[in-house]
Design a protein around this nucleic acid. Sequence first.
DNA 1: AAGTCTTACAACCGCGAGGTG
DNA 2: TCACCTCGCGGTTGTAAGACT
Length: 250
Amino acid sequence: MESYQSLMHLTEEENEPYREKDIYVERMRNPCCNMMEVKKGCWTAEEDSKLVSYIQKYGHQNWRSLPTRAGLLRCGKSCRLRWVNYLRPGIKHGNFTKEEEETIIQLQRMLGNHWSKIASFLPGRTDNEIKNIWNTYLKKRTMPKNSNSMLKSGAGTSNMIEEKTHCVISSNTLPPNPFELVAIATEQKDVAVPFESGKDPIGFGESEWWMMELAEELGLFEEVEVEENWEKMVTEGGGDPVAAFIGNLI
DNA sequence: AAGTCTTACAACCGCGAGGTG
DNA sequence: TCACCTCGCGGTTGTAAGACT
């Protein structure tokens, strides 16, 4: 009979806790959630502790086998969710700031219900948490009055990136702010944002760069035109790093 | 005080994408 | 190519706690 160790591709060290237990192939062939006895509902402090200490020691290469190896009567999905949304280092707990809420509203307007993408703009916040606060009250806040019917039908949660835009980026048309750029891209057509030569056009922070990258990734622009002399102009304008990004857009 | 409603959020479920044999 | 498996995502549900009547 095939051993638990070989089945799970465990090292000698990892297999140690199971050496004396009769855990063999037949058990492991069972799907984790359907046939094995798994606990549901809220996690206890003891379960959290087991999960954290296991992941700190061995990592989480395989969520499916993790519960058994960590001594938890949970399914792998449940473990993953608990780790990702609550136990993972760097997770912020507590109320969202006004700025965070505004960012969520803005991003939801632009991206739709792509919570994991939205979460990538809010370090320490999880997609689940963002989805929750959106469904709890941010959605209501963004709805126009007397629009309950829209709320119920979901008609109010538009994804505005469906209609692509033609954007001209030239030596004198760099965007002043990526948030604005994306907003423009989603609401207007054929836009050109003036860039005053000799001035730093953008106070680029990390999130703004993400925003630009996202705009590219999502294909907000059907067509990007770049004038031949843009590089020279940008360099003369102070060598702003946006030049590098514009280069990537081509 | 007790019952009901609302809010907040943790957790579950089903599905699709991607990897592997 | 196909079947199977795992993972991650988004929708939805369950439930505890607080607010309201």
